[in-house]
Every structure is written in C-alpha cells, then in structure tokens.
Amino acid sequence: MEIIMSVVAGVLFAAGIYNLLQKQLLRIVIGTVILSNGAHLFILTMGKLKRGAPPVLEYGISDYADPLPQALILTSIVISFGLTSLLLVLSYRAAQENNTDNMEKLRGNHDE
C-alpha cells in the first residue's frame, strides 16, 4: 500500500512541478495546489498506513494508527488552504494591474 501511495505522491509532485513551470498564472496556482496535495499524501504515507483503533482515546490498545502524521497533515492542509486563497487573490490583482497573466511579460525592466 505504501508503495502505491508513494508513486501517487510522486505523480502529483511531477504534475505540480509541470504546472508550476507554465507561463499562465492560473496554471501556476493550480500547480502549487497539486504540489501541496502531493506533500500531504506523502506525509501520511511516511507515517505508515495502518488500520486499527483510533489512538489516545482508549487505554490499553496496541494496534492503533499513528496520530502524529495526521496532526501534521491537518496543520499543513489549513496552511496551504490559506495560502492558496491568498495566492488566488494576489494573482487576480496582479493580472488586473499589469494587464497580463503571462509570466514572461511579468519580468519587468531595468529602469524602475
């Protein structure tokens, strides 16, 4: 199971980076979303995928899922959610102000 998930995470990373390298701003934003999803899946996989009782709740169980990766992912998801919304607003404003969403044209020149 871990192998499959690692591969899936890898595919997400590849797709994310491919999108990140595009010129269109919206594609780049989508790329970051896919990338962060890949990272989240990867954290879950690295904590070993296990079936079993929920941790902490009951005393004396031996077969339980590792709670730490779940806590990490939850934090990380919230952060990437906030960042994505910020990035969307920012790219919308930037595209509006500069009249283009093409990164090639957003380079700027020397005399500013």
């Binding site: 990272a39 990380s76 910020l86 990035l87 920012l90 930037a94 102000e97 500069n98």
Partner: peptide
C-alpha cells in the same frame, strides 16, 4: 504585485519541500 507573486511562489515551493 508583480514582484510579490514571484516572492510568494518561491517561498511557497520551498515550504512544500520543507514539509
């Protein structure tokens, strides 16, 4: 706005690699 997009993207990417 133009420059901050690049700033945000680079930092976002490195944060993902950090995680």
């Amino acid at each position: 706005l133009r420059e901050s997009i690049k700033y945000v993207l680079v930092n976002l990417f490195s944060s993902i690699v950090f995680v």
